[in-house]
Design a protein around this nucleic acid. Structure first.
Lengths: 263, 263
DNA sequence: CGCCGTGTTGACTATTCTCAACCCAGGTGG
DNA sequence: CCACCTGGGTTGAGAATAGTCAACACGGCG
């Protein structure tokens, strides 16, 4: 999980975390990640698969606020303010675990390393939010798209879900638009522009970066904000994903999109 | 400070916090809030005045990512990731206090109420970031502006810096544009549109809301995300601002804009 | 076979940006 | 006292960016 790369928790620490979780559950693509009904105050962590967090405006427009990859928590907010829930929707089949708030609290209180790991994880989320705001406010459609693709790629690489310059990107162009604040059509055209520049390939939910440094340039992308550890950043070798299945470091570690239960 | 309204810290708790701060310092309008050189790892809290946090893109564009009002912390990020600093710039004369990281940590470890207050404060920041993303991604210029004005007003009211439907707004139209991802000119036109609708007045850095509920409607603004306490939300009576000067609940609690040290 | 969901493209419209004036108030220096 | 400068704010006109509507292509699936 994300904590891993951030602080090098010991194996004991990790076992401690894993044991504290409720048994993992699954959500189908396009379904919400519901919390189990009996405890409203819990935190969910993605173990496998991709999901997104979104906000709906009263008139139906929706904004995808973050992409959630394995290791991410869904519920930093809910910890203290259970009334401000956002929706979480699976993009692929998602395996996730829930941990009850009191359990997490005692974990944090008894193991300062875990506390730091959790803290850093939330700060990373915040850093990504700031960067997204800069993107939405200042970057053009093409830059925004390039920036998002860079971010996805680096995040995937940090959790061992890349192979060379390829990673999975289980978003339709409509989803991409909702993420970037663009219309579907304009998203398509920006994508075509990046392809025409020979910067990326994107087909069948598989992103291939043809020229990473030029892509970063056009995006004005600086990975510093992702706070990657030096070795997690290089990641030529697949990072051993430890939590959940121990052989999850496959690029297309998610099921191919097909008609699931509709949102 | 913000902690106050969020968790009703006891007076003892507050004294404990106040005592832990370094002596307050001042920054002039348009100057950065520099940390004192001797300890890079510290957290700054705004006591009086307004400031903003911003990100600069390499080509000079700048995005204001958040407005900081009295009680806000400048440095949630720096706590764990000192390399991802953002700039903080004063909009008015600002009084702020710094607290060294180890001091804050021991405060948090020894007083769980303070820990919760700090935690909630950071989560509130996060909630505002999500909402800003929804604004930038989905709302039109006019809606965005209306939404921002609503947010500012509610936040000011929560810290007792309103009088009726008035509050200070020490941003130039250029600053507003950098906040909302709009050009100066278009910001001006959106502002004129809101004025033409008789929703607001804005002159000499004083915002007057002429019709709050209609302004909220046009912004699709729902204050829920601000997690206001019921009584802080009503706030017909001025909230006694306790930290810093005890009589700070004046609407125009900041100096009028004039040429300060330039950025 | 026909019906999705998804991607692609064209044509037109709307929103937003840029450039360029101009105004006004306050401050500064003669 | 006035001339001048500077930093806002306001407005117009034209250009660029992005959105909408509509059509069509393609593959998977019933």
């Amino acid at each position: 999980m994300r904590m891993k790369q951030l602080t090098y928790l010991s194996d004991d620490d990790q076992t401690e975390i894993v044991d504290a979780f409720d048994p993992p559950r699954k959500a189908l693509a396009k379904s919400g990640l519901d919390r189990s009904q009996d405890h409203s105050s819990s935190v969910r962590f993605i173990q496998q698969g991709f999901a997104y967090r979104y906000i709906c405006l009263p008139d139906g427009r929706q904004q995808i606020t973050s992409l959630l990859v394995p290791g991410d928590s869904c519920d930093s907010l809910a910890l203290a303010a259970p009334n401000t829930e956002h929706g979480i929707c699976a993009l692929t089949t998602v395996t996730f675990s829930e941990i009850k708030r009191p359990v997490l609290v005692s974990l944090v209180e008894n193991n300062p390393r875990i506390a730091v790991a959790l803290w850093r994880s939330f700060l990373l989320t915040e850093a990504m939010l700031y960067e997204r705001i800069a993107s939405l406010g200042q970057r053009s459609a093409k830059e925004r798209l390039a920036h998002f693709l860079c971010e996805v790629f680096f995040r995937c690489r940090a959790v061992g879900l890349t192979s060379g310059l390829q990673c999975g990107l289980p978003l339709s162009q409509g989803d991409l638009g909702d993420t970037l604040g663009l219309s579907l059509v304009h998203t398509n055209r920006s994508l075509m522009a990046l392809r025409a520049d020979r910067l990326i390939k994107l087909e069948a939910r598989l992103l291939t970066i043809l020229d990473l440094s030029r892509l970063q340039e056009t995006a004005h992308f600086n990975p510093k904000y992702l706070q990657l550890q030096p070795d997690a950043a290089s990641a030529a070798r697949p990072t051993p994903a430890r939590l959940g299945s121990s052989h999850a470091s496959n690029v297309m570690a998610f099921d191919h999109p097909h008609r699931g239960a509709h949102a």
